[in-house]
Design a protein around this nucleic acid. Structure first.
Lengths: 254, 254
DNA sequence: AGAATAGTGTCTTTTAGACAATATTAA
DNA sequence: TTAATATTGTCTAAAAGACACTATTCT
């Protein structure tokens, strides 16, 4: 709806003046994922003030008056990763959902738009700037987070895992040039299950536009084994039919 | 992030006081869908004030200080459909995404959390209350909408169509008791493609927990033909493997 | 009888899962 | 040689697509 609907009923406390009713602060929170050494990692910052001083939290910040939430998220992503805005602009960033519980911040009403970013393995964030204590943390070993960030992060991880099934998103975790073994490890790391290498290869290569083979010489994936053909991400964004996650042994529908 | 991060850098205009920087208004917008006479319909309201006076818009309203966006959406859904809060509480409602373009409302900064609701065929909304001119409108025949509501509505429709593929959401469009023919028409209506009836039946019935057959006597779907067995929604929420939408003849990967 | 919808059955095609076997490199 | 990874190929199983055919009811 919009502000002029204020006249339609009791839903608007008082007229049109934004100062006449309690204002909201709007922030963005970022769940920045990467795959490091075959384990899922997330970028966390250490809080320097109360409440939750010393706890870990998701990076984020206020949406400025002249920017959209998406622009704020992109700006924060560049700041926290230490990348240039141009480089960060090429990273995959997508809106997840908005958290608006009245009590989610003990001091005032803060509505937060959560974003997920998928990045290739980057260097440790530089200490400079205002990202006082940003650090890559293994997802499986994380402790409790400040505010409702634990739930936001868990939601983000669920979403990323689901989106790997029917989008070509996995290439966002890889550097510009990668092997199929590296791409497979992205799936195995996020889903936490091993995949059959020949079947994975068949699926990826028969999905038009998922990846494109490069001309150059092959390269080894880990440092061992036969050198693998190099690929880059193709133009496709959707996976039809999807690459379904193997089911757990238990019942499926509950 | 949270408000105390204000001290961390230039991201917070001025300290912690919410009155010290431009406040945001937070609203919810609702895309309420139903299937009527085999055509997709959406609930729209006519605007009574400028700007966009006389244009159609999505129903919605301000988030109140003591409620979450989800609670606001549920409240608005009850108001606009004329149902009791208890009845409306059983309807399917899900958050879509948040729209925060600085210019989306010409008068002030309004951030809107969009929700989609799926409802069975309901009576025309009563004129009473503050839903001054709410009306079911055929989706295909809609005109331009106020603000960015046209885009919100299109996004909502895309999302609903995609979610029918891998969730059991379609039953939300049906009354508590329905036939498989009615359920199939939901898919055909939202996707705009005909489905093979025997194959659809096989898929639905072999997905555990999607629907449950009822004891009572059968009922005719349109008024013609053989009476059909009645079903109600089962406990399942996800479809594994999904019920994929038939591909269009063209290339699949854009 | 004819139209309309429900429901069953079957054959084919596509896709996925399992897995054997070969190839290429480093240690 | 052995370990590790890449790559090809084959057989089987599961799922979907196509479609013939029967059943029941109304007009």
């Amino acid at each position: 709806m919009s502000v002029t609907d204020a006249g339609r009923g009791p839903r608007v406390p008082e007229g049109y003046d934004p100062a006449a009713f309690e204002p909201f602060a709007v922030t963005v929170d970022l769940a920045v994922f990467t795959v490091r050494e075959n384990r899922l990692h997330v970028l966390l910052v250490e809080r320097g003030e109360d409440p939750y001083r010393g706890d870990w939290a998701l990076p984020g910040g206020f949406v400025r008056p002249e920017e959209s939430a998406g622009q704020a998220a992109r700006r924060e992503l560049a700041e926290e990763t230490g990348l240039s805005e141009a480089t960060a602009g090429a990273l995959h960033l997508e809106q997840l959902r908005t958290y608006s519980d009245p009590d989610r911040d003990p001091r005032m009403r803060v509505v937060s738009v959560a974003y997920a970013a998928l990045v290739p393995d980057l260097p440790e964030p530089r200490g400079g700037g205002d990202a006082a204590a940003a650090r890559w943390t293994e997802y499986a070993g994380r402790g409790p987070l400040a505010f409702d960030h634990g739930r936001i992060l868990a939601d983000a991880c669920d979403r990323i895992g689901a989106r790997l099934e029917y989008t070509c998103l996995a290439t966002a975790f890889c550097p510009p040039v990668f092997t199929l073994g590296e791409l497979r490890q992205v799936y195995e790391t996020v889903w936490g299950v091993p995949l059959d290498s020949p079947n994975f290869r068949r699926k990826v290569l028969t999905t038009p536009g998922f990846v494109q083979a490069l001309e150059g010489p092959p390269r080894r994936t880990g440092g061992r084994g036969k050198p693998a053909t190099l690929y880059r991400a193709g133009p496709a964004t959707q996976l039809h039919p999807p690459l379904l996650r193997p089911e757990r042994p238990e019942g499926r529908t509950a």
